[in-house]
Amino acid sequence: MSAEMRMDVRLPIGGMFTFIGGLLVIYGLVSDKAVYHRSLNININLWWGLVMLVFGVLMLALARKATQEARKLAQSGGKGLATGGANK
């Protein structure tokens, strides 16, 4: 099976980090602040959740961009040349 039909690896990575990042942000907002004495009184869930969320969205955006470019390439006549996110 050739590369163009294969899923872009950034899709599941981006999806997972967006989801768990978001989950951590929400948890950071609603959780009892007393648990953060362990993390030196930093709301580590909120802040690190945000970092993971940004990373996840970035990955999804990159995957989307690659798919669109591949589609454009395919439409402009280069049949079968699309690489489905193969960032060489």
């Binding site: 951590l24 580590i44 869930n45 690190w48």
Partner: peptide, 11 residues
């Protein structure tokens, strides 16, 4: 165990 509260602990 020392530094991670629930949430980030899961990560």
């Amino acid at each position: 165990a020392k530094f991670f509260p629930p949430g980030i602990l899961g990560i």
